[in-house]
Design a protein around this nucleic acid. Structure first.
Lengths: 155, 155
DNA sequence: TATTGTTATACTCTATAACTATA
DNA sequence: TATAGTTATAGAGTATAACAATA
């Protein structure tokens, strides 16, 4: 043997695909599946966002974002509103139904995440989540769904 | 707001897809891309493995494994040998060229991984890798490419 | 001219089932 | 009958480019 081949890439690939499978299975009734949930969660950070901003944030191509929002809008979970300041852009806002779906599917997401991380202790899980979030944010120019806080500029 | 939507699923999705994009870009000349590398790395743990065992280990469907091995075999990186003990099975072994590719592409993989984890300290990176590996292994019934050691039974 | 969003196309992945050959 | 591997097919996901509307 030359050297131990890197196991990290395999591990993150398997872990993310496993989580995606689990969440996809429990979200057959949410348009767009896990991706649809990410959009709802990001939009729920209150400030209306353009489609392009959402696409950059979630790492989805802007063309895919169009299809995703089509589905979510038809299902009545989001609305597209023309931005009065720049009529090229569309502000994406949550409907009451979308907000309800967010919390409902959020519960399923947390259950799947807890199951995935069940081999870690509570303390490890906290540290692991924090580090992974830092890693993910560092790969995006814009911020992630800015999580805990309510009204920050979401840097 | 109801509750902060879970950011973990978003983070692992973004992180894994980012790493996949980076590694795919630097592996255009490896059949199967990152997946092809995972196969080489797993096979390199010396003991010949059946295609089904590889598929389970890497979380790939057995049908996808057939196509992947077709490409790797045509490129001269692996060989399929009939198992003398059970002629239904095929043992997958690395060729010298495959072993050479493994170390060459392994370097590229490590570079991409280091870049992805550049927002962690050295100590954090070690802990993060260890925890992620534990998480990934827990989702598979069989073990991952058993990493460091040389001759263990790779349970 | 540059940017936001849409549409169309093709290409890759994945999932499923049916088939063979061996056990 | 059950298992390892193959083949064929359709579906989802993704990437690309071309286009319309607006800045």
């Amino acid at each position: 043997m030359t050297r131990a081949p890197s196991v990290f890439s395999w591990a993150i690939d398997v872990a993310s695909r496993t989580l995606r499978q689990w969440t996809s299975a429990s979200m057959a009734d949410l348009p767009g599946g896990p991706r649809g949930y990410f959009v709802l969660a990001s939009v729920a950070q209150d400030r209306p966002r353009s489609q392009l901003a959402l696409a950059l944030q979630l790492g989805i191509d802007k063309t895919a974002m169009t299809y995703l929002l089509d589905e979510l809008e038809v299902a009545g979970l989001v609305e597209r509103r023309p931005d009065p300041a720049d009529r090229r852009q569309r502000q994406i806002v949550l409907t009451p139904l979308g907000l309800h779906s967010l919390s409902e599917f959020g519960d399923r997401f947390e259950a799947a995440e807890d199951r995935l991380l069940s081999s870690l202790t509570s303390a490890e899980s906290v540290a692991f989540r924090e580090m992974l979030e830092r890693v993910a944010r560092s790969t995006r120019l814009v911020a992630s769904p800015c999580a805990e806080e309510e009204e920050p500029p979401c840097p």
